[in-house]
């Protein structure tokens, strides 16, 4: 690959953090998130010359990430389970802990594809069309699932607000 490999390294270094955060919001586990990102970037490595020449690297990696997450959720033998419990225990005196915990649980309650749509739309700020392309579904499906997912999370966040007294 030679010079092309430098391009891959630059891309992987610059995008890894963002991809990892997206992956974490999808699966709720930093270690699994690292695995998902590593796998998506490894797939990109294999096809780097073609994908980089086409210029749609972000879309390709995003799709690989989403496919990896959804495939992992579909596998009956999967070793990792999405959980509302953070493996990395936050500081016990953190004021945000109830919010985070509740929000993670609310995210985990969503169907994997619905959760993916919510994360891509409201975290990665993708358009309806980009989200539909990443999941390989219709824009109508994205709109309806995003709306339902948002309503579910709204209810969760409202509960936090009520508990917090604001």
């Amino acid at each position: 690959m030679g010079r092309e490999l430098d391009g891959f390294r630059d891309y992987a270094s610059s995008r890894r953090t963002e991809l990892r955060r997206t992956a974490y919001l999808l699966c709720g586990d930093w270690y699994l998130a690292d695995d998902l990102v590593q796998d998506a970037l490894a797939k990109l490595y294999v096809h780097w010359p073609r994908v980089s020449a086409r210029g749609d690297v972000d879309a390709y990696v995003r799709r690989m990430l989403v496919n990896g997450f959804l495939a992992g959720r579909r596998r009956a033998w999967r070793r990792e389970l999405v959980t509302a419990q953070l493996p990395d225990v936050p500081a016990p005196d953190s004021a945000d802990h109830p919010t985070r915990d509740l929000l993670l649980r609310a995210l985990a309650d969503l169907q994997p594809s619905q959760r993916t749509i919510v994360v891509l739309r409201y975290w990665d700020d993708l358009s309806v069309e980009q989200t539909a392309a990443a999941l390989g579904c219709s824009t109508g499906n994205v709109k309806s699932q995003a709306s339902r997912g948002l309503a579910h999370l709204r209810a969760a966040l409202s509960a936090v607000a009520v508990e917090g007294g604001h």
Binding site: L5, F8, R9, A12, S13, R16, T17, R20, R21, Y24, L25, W30, D34, Q38, D39, L41, A42, K43, L44, Y45, V46, L86, D88, P90, D96, T99, R100, L103, L104, L107, V119, Y122, W123, L153, L157
Partner: peptide
Amino acid sequence: ALATLVATEPELPAGSADIERRGK
């Protein structure tokens, strides 16, 4: 709210050698 979830992000593995090994 989602930003608060990623606020506890552990340290990122350095470099891309692990990815390249996996890619190879």
